[in-house]
Design a protein around this nucleic acid. Structure first.
Ligand SMILES: [Mn+2]
Ligand SMILES: [Mn+2]
Ligand SMILES: [Zn+2]
Ligand SMILES: [Zn+2]
Lengths: 134, 134
DNA sequence: AGTAAGTTTGTAATCATTACAAATATATTA
DNA sequence: TAATATATTTGTAATGATTACAAACTTACT
């Protein structure tokens, strides 16, 4: 995709075959995948893909700001190509990670006088509409 | 401390010497310590303390709900005995983890119709008032 | 005191992540 | 185009935090 290629380039990421495909994957499949999910999904069509490359690529993406790492759980890191302001909900039953729209302007924060806030995450957990006991 | 002992008991945690001292430590020192910090701070006064015990104890505390695990960073887990509703701010320079008061009632959340929200975390990052470049 | 149940400890095993160097691909120069 | 330099990928080995486990110890109960 030319669009993805230019986006990566404009953010200082040289779009190699692997990087482009990995970026396309996380941008298209909004499942907030782990490294393992990305690797197992792409290794079929790219048989020589190394897991090291997936690790390196996602680290590069996060450092260049083209993807975000979501630390909602201490047992896994999930990745998101959606850079817009939003939070996340993880279902304790199925493990699904859902986007949550936030009206963050309403969130009053106290206790940070003279602090410089650069980023934030709002992470929720519970049971999704499918898994919720009725 | 009798107070701590009773609190642990009422939450299903038998207050052994080690558990009581670990709980007292995280309740008194509001630095949101890691396992390593807890261990290195207490191993002087409790020379036989095993790091395994610290791991086991904090896992027990979290499962019994007497402490919370804060996943603000994928490189460390920090623990908090403060069960009240509040968020956290981590300084990227000194690593300090600060409490943040939230008026969370104002936070409008969309996209979770029929979901059951059980817990949430609000995690911020940036630079504290000491480390902030002027 | 003696027995049983629960807890702690030290060590060994596990496993996700990282380091590294060779191989491959891409860009640059002649 | 061929040669050379630079960047990226790959596979394997090393690392290190966490967990599994069984022996030692502590506590509660008879
Ligand atoms: Mn998202
Ligand atoms: Mn706190
Ligand atoms: Zn679910
Ligand atoms: Zn600081």
């Amino acid at each position: 995709m030319e669009k993805y290629s230019n986006f990566l380039l404009s953010n200082g990421v040289k779009p190699s075959v692997q990087r482009l495909r990995i970026y396309e994957f996380i941008h298209t499949n909004r499942i907030h995948p782990t490294i393992e999910m990305i690797y197992s999904n792409l290794s079929h069509e790219m048989p020589t893909l190394s897991k090291t490359t997936v690790y390196n690529t996602l680290k590069l993406f996060v450092s260049k700001g083209v993807a975000k790492a979501i630390n909602i759980e201490d047992t896994e890191i999930r990745y998101d190509a959606d850079l817009s302001t939003h939070g996340h909900f993880k279902c304790k039953s199925c493990g699904g990670l859902f986007d949550v729209m936030l009206k963050i302007d309403n969130l009053v924060i106290e206790g940070l006088d003279n602090f410089k806030i650069e980023e934030y995450q709002v992470n929720l957990k519970g049971y999704c509409n499918v898994c919720k006991p009725n």
